[in-house]
Simulated assay, not measured.
Amino acid sequence: MALRSLKLPGVGTKYEFKTEKGDTVAIFFTSTGTIQMYTLQKGCQASSAAEMTPVEARRLGNILTGAIIEADQESVEIAFSALADLRVTIHTFYIPKMNAGKTIEDLQIRAKTGATVIAVCRQDKNIINPPPSFAFEEGDAALVIGESDQIKKFESEILVK
């Protein structure tokens, strides 16, 4: 089950290995930025192929390593099997006018919901790990992390009043 890699000028890099059953799996990181995956079952002549964006390839990698991700519009749920089946939800919320000018501390986000704001995108600028004194503006995209029920509480307690 040795992994072989080969640089292909003008194409990209190919990684290939054979499974214990004799099937072949090949991954191409193309020079255009896409990732192609090919599988060839032992004894078959035709391979199957899938072309993915880098985001899709990372999602597949997470699935294969046990960090299951379930995406739902602006939300992602990740299950970490190595951490007693810990499930964490990350959701993007757009800040409404009624919360403009209020800080994370004013809104008592963690105390009321248990969720945490881990990033805010404002006019194409990302603010990572904003402090409690961070004041929201209408239309900010807030990235919030927590358990599923904490995310629901954030939506009902903070955004809808």
Score class of each variant (00 low, 15 high):
Ile35His: 00
Leu64Ile: 12
Gln73Tyr: 08
Pro96Asp: 09
Ile27Glu: 04
Ile27Cys: 04
Thr13Ile: 09
Ile95Lys: 08
Lys153Ile: 00
Gln41Ile: 11
Asp124Leu: 08
Val25Asp: 00
Leu83Ala: 15
Phe93Asn: 00
Asp72Cys: 01
Asp23Asn: 15
Pro96Ile: 12
Leu83Trp: 11
Asn126Met: 09
Asp85Lys: 12
Tyr94Ile: 10
Ala57Asp: 00
Arg4Ile: 15
Thr113Ser: 03
Gly139Trp: 05
Arg110Pro: 05
Thr32Pro: 01
Ser148Val: 08
Ile145Pro: 00
Phe136Arg: 07
His91Gly: 02
Ile118Tyr: 05
Lys18Ala: 14
Glu56Ser: 06
Pro54Glu: 11
Gly12His: 02
Gly146Asn: 01
Phe154Asp: 04
Ile104Phe: 10
Glu155Gly: 07
Gly61Pro: 05
Ile118Trp: 04
Arg59Glu: 12
Ile104Met: 06
Pro132Trp: 03
Thr32Tyr: 12
Lys102Leu: 11
Pro132Ser: 04
Phe80Arg: 05
Lys153His: 07
Leu6Cys: 14
Phe29Asn: 11
Thr89Ile: 13
Ser133Asp: 12
Leu159Glu: 01
Leu143Glu: 07
Gly12Lys: 07
Arg87Ile: 13
Ile69Ser: 10
Pro96Glu: 04
Leu143Phe: 15
Leu40Gln: 08
Lys42Asp: 09
Asp72Gln: 10
Arg59Gly: 04
Leu6Tyr: 04
Asn62Gln: 15
Ile118Leu: 13
Ile109Phe: 03
Thr24Trp: 00
Lys112Tyr: 05
Lys18His: 06
Val55Phe: 04
Ile63Met: 09
Leu143Ser: 08
Cys44Lys: 05
Glu16Met: 03
Pro96Gly: 08
Val25Cys: 03
Glu137Leu: 08
Cys121Trp: 04
Gly146Cys: 03
Ala135Phe: 02
Ile95Met: 15
Ser48Tyr: 12
Lys152Leu: 10
Leu3Asn: 14
Ile128Arg: 02
Ile35Pro: 01
Ile145Leu: 15
Leu6Asn: 15
Tyr38His: 14
Lys14Ala: 15
